[in-house]
Design a protein around this nucleic acid. Structure first.
Lengths: 362, 362
DNA sequence: TTGTAAGCGTTATCAA
DNA sequence: TTGATAACGCTTACAA
């Protein structure tokens, strides 16, 4: 009983200009089997006679066939990609973390889609949206997202999101307590007798890490009845030259700080340079500390006191969190990585230790 | 006249566990239109009544719809992604270039798929293969690929490939003449009277940039009747600490070099540190030069003589080459970026200028 | 101006 | 052990 169902004629589509695309159908034809069998061979997803298997394999490399990820992603709704958005790759810490992230991801078969926000939160949201459109199965961002939308967007799609460089209790994160880091550095200096402590921080607005570090410093000061004066808090972009600018501002402030905590090692490097340029002895007259412990920190003159932040570990652990979740394993939501205070030559006791009754002069 | 064609019942597929996926069909249903209209609205690809357009837009954000890139890529055979493979992101130059590459790509609507090879050529090939499987429309790699396979693979798919940090005549590239850079540094030192020049290079095997730099140095020496002695060529990984090791080796060689050219600024930094540690005056007793002009180069003590390499420009130009080609514009195949010799305080005339008739002692 | 439906290249179900 | 074939979600002729 024939019906008038039209013959399944393939409609002609815009021909790809240039090289021929070879699909599983071509392989199947070449090997004299069906596409189903080709798929089975390629994914080892079903029984295939050894002889047939060999024919298919032969056809595959005779034709130089590579499966089309888009088609596969479509049918399996799995892209095998992970997205990451960092503030900038120009900061060595993030570059190192991304390197480790990618390396670990790769071992699990994932490819990394990378974007950077330039420390711009609106931009970050856009980037996450793009990544999501591209079907990433997981997302890693730096910091607690100011944009709740980011979390919402990911949650709506069931895409796991990890926040790094920060520690949250409510959402998945891999990082450390930035506030504690600030406190630790301030305590070190306070214990050395410093009472006038200046801060050259990164921009705190829209940057929870930078803000937390400053908050930690203020907290430690407060614990000793001191407070962080407005003119002792300078915010600058994270660059060497900005550290120089920052120190200049601090040196002009009243009372002049005897110690400076910098938001990261780049700023600290700059501060060190500026001090040297002005003939200010570090740490004799002025103590300087940074955060990150970049490769050069130990090699400066004097070597920089800083807090070591395990950037590679943050990258690797973020990857592992995502991999575990995607493979259905149970995972700790929050991973704290260990930072450590590294005291080197750039910090020393305050020059002329003030008497017992001060603290009201700042 | 009814025929017994079975009703087009949708087969039940594995339900995505968790959040509902919203597709264009859902949007269409919600807006009371067809999927075709939804597509038209989203891509502005056809006439749509203003009123209908608004309904669709409303439905889109009522449902929080995001198009599925895999499906789109499949039907249009365009992934809107570009792949890049760098040796490592831990080298600031590459990090900066990737940052610029991504930024430029983004403005043209492309997303970056990033991989790193760890300076391993076999690995690099694997990574390129993965990127290709993911359907990238263009590929950027660092250096002239030792693996002809990479070029072949890309060519077979009609995917443009750019080689960076190098200059080729036969294939698309964005970079500079590494040999000339080596020559330039050697000439500078030679002109200062140095006759015993040591080299701390990166590993030259499988790294055409490093090899070309060394070749350029040897060439400049040869032009003055000198040659680069085996014991004056040390190859080390690109890290500060390795520069220290390199200088130690060089100082033990006979005759002891009065000048050292380093494969990059990291190695030069290390050499500088080692010299200081040993009480060797730079540039009084020993001249040191690097390549890259990283942010810290000008800030070292003494400031480092180096060759400035415009990493960000390399990244940006690579992106532009790819974008232009993919949009069908005609493009220059080879783009040379300008490097420049920056003479700072780490190089000076040879201590005890030898008499007119030497040159046979090396 | 809109809708219908073919197909993009896979995977996976089902029947053979 | 294999082959048909229905989706996957989208774009785009083509028809209405």
């Amino acid at each position: 009983m024939e019906v008038d169902k039209p013959a399944p004629r393939r409609r002609t589509r815009r021909r790809t200009p240039g090289p021929v695309r070879v699909s599983a159908r071509d392989v199947a034809r070449h090997a004299g089997v069906s596409v189903a069998t080709v798929s089975r061979v390629l994914n080892a997803s079903g029984p295939v006679a050894e002889k047939v298997r060999r024919q298919v394999v032969a056809a595959v490399d005779a034709l130089g066939y590579t499966p089309n990820a888009a088609a596969r992603a479509l049918v399996r709704s799995r892209s095998e990609t992970i997205g990451a958005v960092v503030p900038t790759l120009e900061n060595a810490s993030f570059a190192i973390a991304v390197e480790a992230l990618q390396a670990r991801l790769r071992t699990a078969g994932y490819t990394l889609l990378l974007a950077s926000s330039g420390y711009d939160n609106a931009n970050e949201l856009t980037q996450v949206r793009t990544l999501l459109t591209h079907g990433v199965e997981g997302v890693v961002v730096v910091g607690g997202s100011r944009h709740v939308d980011i979390e919402r967007l990911c949650a709506a799609r069931g895409v796991p999101l990890v926040q790094t460089w920060t520690l949250r209790t409510d959402t998945p994160s891999v990082g450390f307590d930035n506030r504690a880091v600030g406190r630790q550095l301030a305590d070190l200096l306070l214990d050395l007798g410093h009472r006038h402590i200046g801060v050259i921080a990164g921009f705190t607005r829209g940057n929870d890490r930078a803000a937390a570090r400053v908050a930690g410093i203020a907290e430690a000061l407060a614990a000793r009845g001191l407070k962080l004066a407005r003119e002792h808090l300078i915010e600058r972009p994270y660059r060497i030259a900005e550290g120089q600018i920052g120190l200049r501002a601090l040196l002009a402030s009243e009372p002049r700080p005897t110690a400076v905590i910098c938001g990261n090692d780049l700023l600290a490097f700059g501060a060190l340079l500026e001090a040297r340029k002005r003939g200010i002895d570090v740490p004799g007259e002025l103590s300087i500390a940074g955060i990150d412990d970049l490769e050069f920190a130990a090699e400066l003159d004097p070597p920089l006191t800083t807090i070591r932040v395990p950037a590679a570990e943050i990258g690797r652990r973020s990857a592992e969190y995502l991999i575990d979740r995607l493979e259905g394993r149970t995972v700790a939501t929050v991973t704290e990585v260990a930072t450590s205070l590294i005291v080197r030559g750039s910090t020393a006791p305050v020059p002329n230790p003030p008497g017992p009754n001060q603290g009201d002069d700042q």
